[in-house]
Design a binder for these strands. Structure first.
Lengths: 209, 209
DNA sequence: ACGCAAATTTGCGTGCACGCATTTTTACTG
DNA sequence: CAGTAAAAATGCGTGCACGCAAATTTGCGT
């Protein structure tokens, strides 16, 4: 299929970008190098990614996007929407992907990549909206989108805070892999949204489909 | 003061960008023209704006950013946080600025500018966070930020929907100035967040400063 | 197997964003 | 009023994103 090949080159580009960034540092990676490493023309690279940072970060963020919807759907219905969302997010953002350890370290270290990394939180909005709509019933698509966007925004804020503290700890002492407090931080940041999620769930329950 | 002059050139650049965009159409405006019209070097222009679209849209979005915080603070405390926010947002997004009428028409018509316009919703996040924190007390800065980001995201979604419908009406029939339903759309989109806002307000009331 | 139409890739040209080093302006002090 | 240090404006060079049109690949019907 055509779709498969497209996805393959996409992943090849992303993987090449990440590998080169790890080898030489992200600022010494030319677009032409990524394209060559993936075996395509430089122009083609730009048909897939609109910035170098995007290509590098995509490798880490891509699967998260897929997992998060599955994680929400995977929670039993008895758990409640708010708890399901929180746990799904925590799971998605703490389970590091396969070669993701040092990649994350690189991303969180370099400022240019941190921005792109934080920006990937927007990408979870659509999967989340789908998952929420699936739980609430598709009656109010708009509510689902708003709640999903709010959750995504909260995740972004949590990540910003996390990166800020880790940056401080980097400048302060030696190499500290920052992961300990992220789950707690995510839970705390998502907490203010719980009433809205509960209310939406309650409304959906009152007015069954 | 230095700060005043900086702000002056910033506004000069933005105004020049908007004027040229209205005259020739946004795609026929070169950065050099904007810089020349504002009497600065092209390089200097880039010290103020990192993209042409940003400069054009800034004229419309800039004051909104300032007004929205004032609008929230201006509501009497008896109104309640949720209502105050909703009304402030509606006011900020329906009261068109001085020469903003045709500017908005241009912005909503051209796809490249629509994206930038929607992106400006992110700019209201910080002012909103300040205003919310002012009402809730500064005990929980994080809650204020999350709620502000959620409101901003909801506004963005409302704008996206509004632009979509107006785009449809443009392609369908003749020139329709789209403004009628925006307030209602904003209210409806913000509604799902009300429970979270109420809960935060209630918490703040229980635990006074 | 052949050829055709759609989708994808590619090359090229244009504008642009931004880092860096230098010059010019600004605000303050003796 | 000069002298000075910080801040802003500027010039220049490098990489890059992206529109456009030509070339190549892909999938399919005959």
């Amino acid at each position: 299929m055509r779709e498969q090949k497209k996805q393959a080159t996409r992943e090849a580009l992303s993987a090449a970008a990440l590998r080169l960034a790890l080898e030489r540092g992200p600022d010494d990676v030319r677009v032409d190098d990524i394209a060559e490493a993936a075996g395509v023309s430089p122009r083609t690279y730009n048909n897939y990614f609109s910035s170098r940072e995007q290509a590098i970060v995509a490798a880490v963020a891509g699967e998260r996007e897929a997992r998060i919807a599955a994680a929400v759907a995977g929670r039993p219905v008895g758990v409640g929407l708010a708890a399901a969302l929180v746990e799904a997010v925590v799971e998605a953002y703490t389970t590091a992907s396969e070669p993701g350890r040092d990649a994350l370290l690189l991303i969180t270290t370099r400022p240019s990549l941190r921005e792109a990394f934080v920006g990937t939180t927007g990408a979870i909005e659509n999967p989340l909206a789908g998952a929420i709509a699936g739980r609430l019933g598709d009656d109010d698509e708009r509510t689902a989108r708003v709640l999903a966007a709010s959750v995504a925004a909260a995740v972004r804020i949590a990540l910003e805070g996390w990166l800020q503290t880790t940056a401080a700890s980097f400048t302060a002492g030696g190499l500290v892999v920052p992961s300990g407090s992220l789950p707690d931080l995510l839970r705390a940041t998502l907490a203010p949204l719980t009433p809205a999620l509960d209310a939406a769930e309650e409304r959906a329950r009152r007015r069954p489909r």
